[in-house]
Structure formats: structure tokens, C-alpha cells
Design a protein around this nucleic acid. Sequence first.
DNA 1: CTGTATCCGATATGATACTG
DNA 2: CAGTATCATATCGGATACAG
Lengths: 130, 130
Amino acid sequence: MLMPRRRPTSAQCPMDTILRRLMGPWTTYILWLLYSEGPLRFGAIKAKMPDISSKVLTDRLRDLESYGLINRDYRPSIPPSVTYSMTARANELHEVLEGLNMIALKWANEDAINQDQEHPMMEIMAETQN
Amino acid sequence: MLMPRRRPTSAQCPMDTILRRLMGPWTTYILWLLYSEGPLRFGAIKAKMPDISSKVLTDRLRDLESYGLINRDYRPSIPPSVTYSMTARANELHEVLEGLNMIALKWANEDAINQDQEHPMMEIMAETQN
DNA sequence: CTGTATCCGATATGATACTG
DNA sequence: CAGTATCATATCGGATACAG
């Protein structure tokens, strides 16, 4: 007897939910863009992510919107204009994203050193949110 | 002309890599277990995750190991014993995971209130790492 | 006890074309 | 400009059986 397929989840782990929302693929980068560059239009986001299709970008934006992480401002001009921005809730992620980014850069640097002793590119993406 | 299928990635976003490693499914919970309970044997982990199959648990453990986030201690006794534990690198995630967990709990609580005004279960999973 | 080996099917990404 | 519609296929989780 087949059970209806459940989504794999570790419901016991609160982080799991949040990570599923932050994660993938592209999602984090979208948040990062809005976070570091402020509100952006659909086309502007797409321009910064040349390899994403309209369909997937739309999907990801809809996901983020439904999670309450981004706002969608629609202006029915001709042609229409849609601008996306982070919500207050998403801004609560500030510290965490900052910490995650620092660790990510640190590890990337360490990995680079381990794989190639010659090019330990230590570019701290000194990102300024203030 | 078909291009070879690439994995979807936002290589520009350092966090993306790290989130792919932390994330799913089950991965976060495995880390959380090792983090909050200390080293555990394969069977002990599986016992705490009744819904995961051996295959997937093995996959996740191998992934985490290859990322340098967990150690695998193999004792060729009879029967064999394998114990998993977090690496020093994984412990660097402590602060971030703590922050993420707090946000996750906060949002889960807010969502519960919004969806049902009666059961705003505010259980702070007062997890103590010290 | 700690896994491997297969096979299957759900899901989601990607390409492409098209629209208000 | 900002999407939607369709279709193809890669990927990965899950079940089951088996092994050192």
C-alpha cells in the first residue's frame, strides 16, 4: 500500500523551514540583491542573473512573496512596472545573513588555499549595508 | 544545440554554497542533533529520524563529511561501530545557527498566531550548547 | 551494525514560444 | 516590461532487498 508521498522534512527542526525558504536555487541571491541594492524591478533582477529563465525567476519571486520575505509593487503603467523589495520580516535576517556571508567568504578562502597554495584570494566583499 | 545541463547556481553569491551544504532535506536536522547531543552513532541518528531511509541518511552523512562539517569515526569491531561528530569548522556555524533558530521560532510563532488566534504556542526551544 | 545496490516516481529546472 | 504556457528531462528522495 502506497502512502501519499510526503515532502521530506525534519519538522522537528525549526531551521529547516526557514532554510527551505532562503534556499534554493537562486533564492538566496535574489534576497542578497534586494538586500544590498535595494528595491529592483523584474528586468533589473533578471539582468543581474543572466542564466535564470523568466519562469524560474517568477517562481522564486512568487515563493519569496508568499513567505512574506519580499514585497511586489505593481504599477499598471504602459508598459507595466513591477518593483520588488525586502519586507520588514526579511530584514530580520540581516544579522544572520551577514554572519553567513562572512563564514562563506572565510571558507571559500580556506578552500582556495587548500586547493591551490598560490592564489589565496582573500577578497573580503566588504559589503556595506549602512 | 543543447548545452550540457548545469547545476543551477548563483556562483556570485557565496552564501549559496554554504546554504546548499546546510540545507536539505534532513541535513540541518542531522547537524542540529550532533550539535545539541554530541557525537552519535549511525543507528542513534537513524533512531531519532524514523522517517529517513538508510540510503538517504548515508547520502547526507557523506555530503556533510565531504564538506568537512562532520567527522566519521569508524571502529572495525564486530559488529562495526561508526560515530559521527561535528568538526571545528561546523562549530563556526554556532552563532549563525543560533540566530537562525531564534528567527525560525519567532516566525513560526507569528505564523501560528496569524493562522489561529487561539494557539500561539510560544515554546522557546531553550537549547543550551554550553 | 552500518551500510550498498536497484529501481521507481515526484519534483523542479530549463528551453522555447507566446501575451496583455 | 513582466510575465505565462508547454514540454522535456535531470535530479533526488523513497522503498526494498541485500551484504560485510
